[in-house]
Design a binder for these strands. Sequence first.
DNA 1: TTTAGGTATCTTGCATTGCAAGATAGTGAA
DNA 2: TTCACTATCTTGCAATGCAAGATACCTAAA
Lengths: 108, 108
Amino acid sequence: MNAQFKKGVLEMCVMALLGFRDRYGYELVHEISERFEISEGSIYPLLRRLLTEGYVSTYLQESVEGPARKYYSLTENGFQARNELIKEWNDFSNAVCGLIEEMTHAER
Amino acid sequence: MNAQFKKGVLEMCVMALLGFRDRYGYELVHEISERFEISEGSIYPLLRRLLTEGYVSTYLQESVEGPARKYYSLTENGFQARNELIKEWNDFSNAVCGLIEEMTHAER
DNA sequence: TTTAGGTATCTTGCATTGCAAGATAGTGAA
DNA sequence: TTCACTATCTTGCAATGCAAGATACCTAAA
């Protein structure tokens, strides 16, 4: 999978997932990887970025099957940014898909 | 518009357009900008990249309304790369849109 | 006890690419 | 001659995904 396509989209996907419920990093990696492959080296720096930008807050929670998990939770600002990002993605992907369709089915 | 979203996608759009007919750089900028904003500083280095990778060839053609135009034409390899890129984009954008939908209309 | 594998977090530095900013130059009209 | 439009090109910065590796907890098998 083209790594360039993911630029910026990964951030939006993480925020979309967090808008539904709190999650921890390792969980996010595996959930997103069901759709398209990503690695831990992408997620943790991204989560740190969201934290310093004030879009998420964190809390630790113990686990029965391994080390403690650091959960991430969207802040009010995070929700707003999430919604804007989703809107931008929808506009963008519609524009791109429209262009592709015109350029590949332009015979008719 | 989120500049990160365009990474890699701009290349695919250019190749999609060139797959339909030959175009020159300035023309590509304006055609793509009808869908989403891009600048000349993005197109010309990209076209040079496609040239060195052997995906396009070029030829000059005079114009009645300004300096000569450098037209870009997809090579055989370029067509193949174009089709693969479009397929990858379709898979990727479907995956992302599916995730977004599930995370925003997950009440039901 | 030791080993192995799954779970979980984190850091460093590289590669890629869009873009702002600016340079250059042809054409035609005011 | 001045302006606007057309057209190409270069430089260097900013952003971000990821490979690679380190650390550490827990459980179960050997």
